[in-house]
Design a protein around this nucleic acid. Sequence first.
DNA 1: TTTGTCAATCAGCCCT
DNA 2: AGGGCTGATTGACAAA
Length: 267
Amino acid sequence: MGFDDICNTGLVLGLGFSSTTDQKSSKIAPLGKGPPSLGFEPSLTLSLSGDHTYDQQATKKVNVTKPLNDHQSADLYRQDSAASSYSNASVKRERDVGSEETTEVERVSSRVSDEDDDGSNSRKKLRLTKAQSALLEESFKIHSTLNPKQKQDLARELNLRPRQVEVWFQNRRARTKLKQTEVDCEFLKKCCETLTDENRRLHKELQELKALKITQPLYMQLPAATLTMCPSCERIGGVAENPSKNPFTIAQKPHFYSQFTNPSAAC
DNA sequence: TTTGTCAATCAGCCCT
DNA sequence: AGGGCTGATTGACAAA
């Protein structure tokens, strides 16, 4: 079982040279990609095995302009008739204890007015209804950025201002990115731990080999542990191609064998 | 210059 | 009360 089997992250660990392609930071960059490097450099890289842009993964299409069902419509339009969210109307949210069905009617409406009724500048917070959030989420799955028409349509659909839709998408993108960064960070920590362990193990093995070299003649120096068989090509590591010549020659290039590498590729 | 996006931050609301 | 979530604002930056 490989590491990725455990983590199941879809990330790929690679060792080699990295070339720089200046990544544009605008648009929603494929999440998990790091800052650009500075040309060709030896690198140990971790990257996502696929292009994990969240926005492209949706399989379910939602017609943003399709009419809402009765319940949704009712929610939204009752909101519309509710007091302005930017007014001092009480931010009532009926909490039916024990009941899932929070009365959305009572939720604060997103109102198309910019000013408080009383003219005060206090920022009253809009809370989107479940229906609004759901529709925004579905829309985000389809495209994480909106063109002006899409924004307009969606705003009309949700009875919000286009600016509010825009802000929602902005925040959604930012927070998705943040979340992904946290996930990547956790994964890298695990990789680091695993590599540290591997490094420690190899050091130990090296020490053992050195000790053997001192105390034993050459033909007895190969510990059983080094005669591991590659499960992919079924060659025995540490033995020369032509055993008749020198059956105890240590392979020139050690067969690095770890759960991060593909044995076939290494062979 | 305009427009769109982003990062950083603020601030209201809700939950524990 | 404090923390988390989330809507909103601001300023910087890039592309057209």
